[in-house]
Structures are given as C-alpha cells and as structure tokens.
Write a protein that binds this DNA or RNA. Structure first.
Lengths: 329, 329
DNA sequence: CTGAAAGCGCTAACAT
DNA sequence: ATGTTAGCGCTTTCAG
C-alpha cells in the first residue's frame, strides 16, 4: 500500500508538498497540486491516520460511556453525539460499562493511552472519584446523568422539576394515592426525582406515604414488573404510579394488565424518557420527554470544545410532559 | 506526559528494555524489571497507543456496520462481538449507516485509512460491490445479513427454514389464511423468508394468495402498523400474520388491538428475532429466536482470525421457534 | 511556493 | 540480558 513518500516520488515533489495538498491549508501551485493529485489517483493512495494521529498527538476518537446499550433511552442521545462528532471529524467508541468498575477502567485506559481524546459519560454508576481525577488531565463531559459536587461540565435537564410536573399532572387528574417507582438514591437524579415527587404532594396537601415509594436496582422492564407486583399488594392500592423510566413503567403496565386491571381507569401510569416503545404500548404511555438528540449534540460540542482547549459551561435543557393514554385514556 | 524515553532515562536503561517490560514477551532480569516498573510508577507513565499502533501498523479497532441503532435486534449480537473483541484487545466502533451509501463510505474510509483493522457488516443494504472490492484488501465478515454470491465469509441462520417453521406452526394451529409481512426482496433474507413461507403453504396444500404478501420499506413499528392496516381491510381477512421482524409484528399487534380485535383469537401473530421487547407486549409475541450473542462472538472471532491472516469459513447457526401468547393465548 | 529534515512514541532486528 | 538504531507515515518548522 502506497505511502506519502511514494506519492511524492511519483509526483516528483517532496512529501511536504503532498501533505500540503492533502490538508489543503497551505498554498500550493495549481500545477503542482494537479501532479500530486494524479499521483494519488494513480497509486491509489490513502493517507494513514496512524501516522497522522501520532504526529498530531490525537486519535480523533471520543468515548461514550453508557451502562447498557439495551436501554433505548440512549438512542437519540447517541445519534446526536454521533452526528455532531462526525461533522467535526471525530468518531465515537460506544462503551458499555454494565455499571462495572472493571469494565469502566478498560475504557478509561483508552484515554490514558491516547487512543481516545475524550469521554462523554452517561453512566450514573460511574466511579466519580476516578472520573474526577481523569478530568484533570483529559476532556470529560457528563451527559444526562451527573454526579453532584464534581467540577465536570454537564448537560442535563432539571430532574426535580420534571418529576414535580409529572406528579402534579397525576394529582390534577384526581389521584391522591400516587406511588413512586424510583431507582437507588445513590444516584443524584433519583434523589432529585424523589424531591420533585414530594414537592408536588406537599403543595397539594397530600401526606407522604413511605409505603408508596419503591426502589429498584435497575431501570428495566423486569424491575418494573416486580415493583408493580408489590404495589398491587398494598392494602390501600395506589391509583397512580410514577416511574422514573419508561421501561419501569412498561413493566408496570404489563403487570397491571396481568392482574386484570385497566390503565388508566384502575391505575394510571407515568414514565420518564419518552423512548420509542412508550408509544407502542397499549395504552400509550404518558411520559416526560427529554430533548435527547439536542442533548447529544450539545454534549458532543462541549466535549470537542474541551478537547480543543476552549472553555465550556454546563447546560440545563428544557423538558416536556407528554400526556397520552396511560393517564387520560 | 511522560514517554518511553523518559522512563528509560529515569530507570537508567534503554527504551528497548522498557518496551520489553511493557510487553512482557522477551526476558528481562528481575532487578531491571523492578527498576523499570518503579520508573513507570514514579513518572505516571502510560504507553501511547498512537506510537504503538503506527509501529505495528494496526489500530486494534474493528467496525460494526448496522443500519440503525434503534433496532434492539442488534443488542445481543453487539454484546457478543464486544466481549469477544475486548478479550482480544480489540475495540469496536459502532457505525450506524442509516442505510445510506454516503454514511457507509465515511466508515469504509476508516479502514482504508488504517483507522480500523476490519469490518463486521450487519447492514443488508450495504453496497455489495464496494464491500466486495474492500474485502480484497481488508478483513470483512458479514453477520446475520449477507449478500448472496459474494465471496465474503458470513455467519447467519437458515432464514428459509426458520420462516418455513414459523408458518408451519401457524398452519398447525389451524390457520389457512396467513399473511406475510416481508421487507424488500432486494435483500436475500427477504427472498429466503418468502420462500420458506411458500414451502410451508405448498406442503399443506394451501394455494398462494399474492394479496396476502406485503412488503415494507423498513422493519420498524410504524411499518408494521401500516401494513396491518391494509391487511385488516382485505375482504378475506387473514387469521394469522407472519412478520419478518418483531418490530413489524409489534406494530401489527398494536393495530389489531386498535381495531378492537383480539390476538390470537381473531388474528394470530408471529414475529422474528426475539428482541427483549417481544416479551413485554400484551400478549407476548411468538417469534423466531436467533442465537444472537453467539452469532456476535463467532463473527468477532472470524474477523480477528481474518485480520491476523488465518483462514475462515462461513457458519450457519441454529434457530428456534419460541411459542408464546400471540399464537396460542 | 517548495524542499529538507526533525520528530511524534513505539517496537524489533541486530549487535553485544 | 540489554543497548543501539532504524523506521512505521505523517506534519510542520525553517530555509531558500
């Protein structure tokens, strides 16, 4: 396979000139340029990024850290990141951490070893200490999820407010016994969403019933089913459930159905994320929409700015409550 | 940031020795090794893959080409590929082509430019000619989808047989008016599945009714809804539908429900792929399971073998019909 | 506008 | 067992 030397030789110019033609920055005489281009054509030359990357001390690869690829919530965000990255000549390495520190470390190593120029972390379970240390030397952005108190730029929504609005909607639909299906409160967003839930209840004079708050280990379908099973066994059965992820909510839907109850007549359900599937269920799911694609593009822009040494500020984006059949069938 | 030179200097040895310690192949005296390791520790040294990659003329990155990340069908396959790749020190670049030749070409360029060592293509819409040309110079494996007649190793299942069994199951459940929801027959797997469908009908003396065959542009939920809408308008309404993807089938489910009909009493439905979500619907979906994780690991193994110059043969894996509520509620 | 030459960080062949 | 050295393929001063 031809390299830049051979092209230079064939074209009768120096490698520097070939490089100039390749990068199109410096001025090259039209005639010379033509010669070089012909040589490139003739030799079927493709510049090697390996050489270029070493020379430039960059990999033009950015890491996306997600807990699991199976949660559709990440799709649109990833698309946003990808398109923005691509437009800036960066490629993305999608890294599934399975929320495991060991796997996480494999990927962190990639930036330590210069195989990646930066990281967009969407993993709430990420080892915050490591991330913090890393962020002193490398470009890191937190997207959607973020650890509090750490000085790493993030893009996210106001979880407390979103949660507040979702619960308020349920209250306005006449519900007073509202269950919360939350994930572990070691995650900041989980604490925030619980606070929004409480604020809505308080504001409407509904006393907090701790029996109505359920914690799940993960945000998946099965966890939603299990939690819903417990909820349905309560003496004073809630008439509504607010789940902090759509998959949880869909699990709840399924379980309610299995128990022979109807949504929303017997139990209303609200999810969170507006994943594609939330519109495929029967009934369709009321849910909180995050501007995922936009969040992705912004995260990518922030990261690239950071990589290139520019200053970046954190961003909080708007969200929207999408009312569908599961609360107002 | 420290480089190998500085480590060598600090340890009072040559760079070659440091490299030896790093790679652990050649023999190094324990004492020397200790000195080097201390230097590495002290200087916080991390070997740069940029230098190593250039030197070794490899990137240790493999490309996965998929039409869209939104189809959960790919999850398990990707996990399989990823785990196998990781265990061999390869990383994966997930590339969404959107079935667009332009985007495809961006990714092909990555291997032309040595940024990737090989490709696992799962995109049926891939430009077969380009792929063929590429495969003469680079390592390429087709996974799950493959173009016929091209001499590129693949791993897949027997689509014709899988389709045959799915339809046979419907016939055995007493159905005789069975619709087929297929994708464009420019794809080999679509032609094969149609053939399996026909074989099952023929074998049971059911005449082929062309009105019962529907083609969709994509394999998504919306396409399933649209096709089902048309199916429900037929004078002689089919009593069963075989869709070549779970998402199509789930769209059909939704539409049947919307029309006030029941599954499987009024219309039975069979999908294809056994995506996670096929178990979350109501009713749960009868579907054809492919050994996706295994397919992924095999594809990765094949690719790495190919990259490293070993010979590889194509593989056809077993499938399984998973009978659930949508055909035998 | 073009060329010569240095060097990014690493590995491996060769020499000792 | 260890050191010396020549590149891998590219970009970018610096001279001319």
């Amino acid at each position: 396979m031809a390299n830049i030397q051979q092209v230079a030789k064939y074209a009768g110019v120096s490698v520097a000139t070939v490089s100039r033609v390749l990068n199109g920055q410096d001025k090259v005489a039209v005639k010379t340029k033509l010669k070089v281009e012909e040589a490139i054509q003739h030799l079927n030359y493709e510049p090697s990024m390996l050489g270029r990357n070493l020379r430039n001390s960059e990999s033009r690869i950015v890491l996306i850290l997600i807990p699991t690829i199976s949660n559709p919530f990440y799709f649109e965000i990833i698309k946003g990141i990808e398109n923005m990255a691509l437009s800036q000549n960066y490629n993305i390495l999608l890294c599934e951490t399975d929320s495991s520190p060991e796997k996480e470390d494999i990927y962190f190593d990639l930036v330590r070893k210069k195989m990646a120029d930066g990281i967009i972390s969407m993993d709430p379970a990420v080892n915050v200490e490591t991330l913090k240390t890393l962020s002193e030397k490398y470009a890191i952005i937190q997207c959607s999820e973020y650890g509090g108190g750490v000085d790493i730029p993030y893009v996210t929504i106001d979880s407390e407010e979103a949660s507040y609005r979702a619960v308020k909607h349920l209250i306005q639909m006449g519900h007073r016994r509202i269950a919360l299906m939350n994930s572990d409160e070691k995650f900041l967003y989980a604490r925030e969403r619980r606070m929004g839930y409480q604020r809505a209840l308080e504001e409407h004079g509904i006393p907090l019933n701790k029996e109505y708050i359920f914690y799940t280990k993960e945000l998946g379908f099965e966890q939603g089913q299990q939690a819903m099973k417990k909820i349905l066994q309560l003496k004073e059965r809630p008439s509504a459930v607010f789940a902090v992820s759509d998959l949880l909510a869909i699990g709840a839907l399924k379980e309610i159905n299995a128990a022979g109850l109807r949504v929303p007549e017997d139990v209303a359900v609200v999810g969170f994320d507006k994943i594609d599937f939330s519109n495929m269920t029967n009934p369709t799911l009321t849910t909180v929409a995050q501007p995922m694609y936009k969040m992705g593009t912004i995260a990518a822009t922030m990261l690239i700015d950071k990589i290139q040494g520019r200053h970046v500020d954190s961003v909080v984006l708007e969200h929207e409550l999408v009312i569908r059949e599961s609360t107002s069938g």
